[in-house]
Simulated scan of single mutants.
Amino acid sequence: MIKNKVLILAMLIVAIVAVGSVSAADDVAVDIDEPADDIAVDEIAIEDDSADETDEIVETEQTRTITYTPYYIDTTSDFDGINYNITNGIFDGYEFIFDNTNDYTNFSMVTGNNNKFTGNGATIIGSTDNLFTVAGSNNIVITGFNMNVATGKAAIYGANVFNAEITNNNITGGKDGINIMQTHDNITISGNTITGVTRDAISLVDHRNLSDTEWANKGYSTISNNIIIGSEYAMFFGGNFKGTIEDNIINGSDYGIEFAGKKAVTNGRLQVDIIANDIYNVQTGIDMYHPNVEYLYMGLNNIETLNNSSCSAIKINSNFAKSTGGEIWIYDNYLYGQVNQTFINVCDAFEDNYGYIIVN
C-alpha cells in the first residue's frame, strides 16, 4: 500500500445540502422539512492511501462500469478531510476499503458520486451525525458494515440518489435505518438487518410530478432479503415508486409496508410486485394510502397481525385509488387480519388467499 499525505491548512466549513425528511408519522399528503445536518471540517491532514496505486478494482454499476481507485481506511484516517474532498468532487471513482480490526467512533461520511464503501465487517459508531450522508449521489455502493446509529439520526440519510446499492449491513438503533427522499431511481437495498430504529427502517420517497414519459423512464428499485425487527414503519414508500419488494422478514413493527402517496396522481404512482415477504406481529401489514395504483401484484406473502379482529392485514383509506387501466392481482397470501372490502372490490383478482381474514 502506497501512501501520500496531503496537508490542508486553514479552517474549512462544509455544509451538506439541506434535505427534508418525510416520514409516515407525518401527514402523508404534505412534505415536512427538517433542518439539514451540517458537517464542520476542521483543520485537516488527509492520508491518501490510493495515490500511485497500480491495482484497480472494477465494479459493474446499473448505469456504467466504474474502475475504482482503492483508498484504505483505518482508525487514524481523517474523516473530515475525506468528507471535504468528496463534497468538492475530488474523490470520484474510489473504493474506500475499511479495516475491520477496530471500531470507528464518532463516524460520519459523505458519499459523493461513483464511490464504493466496503466495510469488511467493520463497526462504525455514530455520535451526533448520520453515519452516511447521501446527498445528490449517483452510483453509490455501501456494503458490509456494522452500523451503530446515534440517537435521533440515521444510518444512511439524504436526498436525490440514483443508482445506489446498500447491501449486507447490520444497522442498530437511531431514528431511521435507510432514509432517502425527494427523488430516487434504481435503488437496491438487499441483505441488510435493521433493528431498534424508532421511526423508519427503510424509507424511499419520490414526490416529483412525473409526466407519462418520465414515469415510463423511471428506474426500478429492489428491496429484498432484508430483516427488520421493531421500528414504527418497517418500509415507507412516499410518492412515486416502481419496483419489487421480495423475500423480506418484518417482525414487530407497527406498520409493515406503507405506501403513502400525495393527493395529485402525477406524484403518487405505484407499480410494484410484493412477493414472498413474511410480516409478523404488526398492527398493520400493508397500508395502502397510495392514491394512484397502476400495477400491484401480491403473491405468497405471510401477513400475521397482532389481532385479526382489530388489526389490518391490508388497509386502505380515502386517498387510495386504482388508476384508469390499472391492475391489482392478489394471490396465494396468508392473511391474519382485516382486509377492506373496497380494496377487494377493485382487485382484478383476489383469489386463493387464506388464513383468518375479516372483511370490513
Rank of each mutant, 00 (worst) to 15 (best):
A150T: 07
P70N: 04
A164L: 04
S211Y: 05
Y297S: 10
A51T: 14
T213G: 01
Y354G: 02
N106S: 15
A349D: 13
I357D: 06
N226V: 06
V282I: 14
L296T: 06
I125A: 02
N292M: 03
K263W: 09
G177Q: 06
T244E: 10
S221Y: 02
Y334R: 10
L12P: 04
I140C: 06
T143I: 06
K262M: 13
T305S: 05
N301V: 05
D348T: 08
T244R: 08
S224L: 05
Q182C: 05
N88G: 01
Q338M: 14
G230V: 01
N225D: 15
V110M: 10
M1D: 15
D103F: 09
G81S: 02
A321S: 15
V161S: 01
V149W: 01
L210Q: 03
S50H: 01
N169Y: 09
I124R: 03
L306A: 10
V110C: 07
I73N: 02
N248K: 04
A201S: 14
N170E: 12
I8S: 02
H207M: 08
V14D: 10
D273E: 13
G256M: 01
L306D: 12
Y356S: 14
I97T: 03
T105K: 15
A36M: 07
Q338S: 12
M298Q: 05
D92M: 11
F91E: 02
E34H: 13
N4Y: 10
F96M: 02
N169D: 12
F91C: 00
F96P: 01
I328T: 03
D348V: 00
F162C: 07
Q62D: 12
T60E: 15
E59K: 12
I344F: 00
S108V: 09
N317F: 09
V14I: 13
A10V: 11
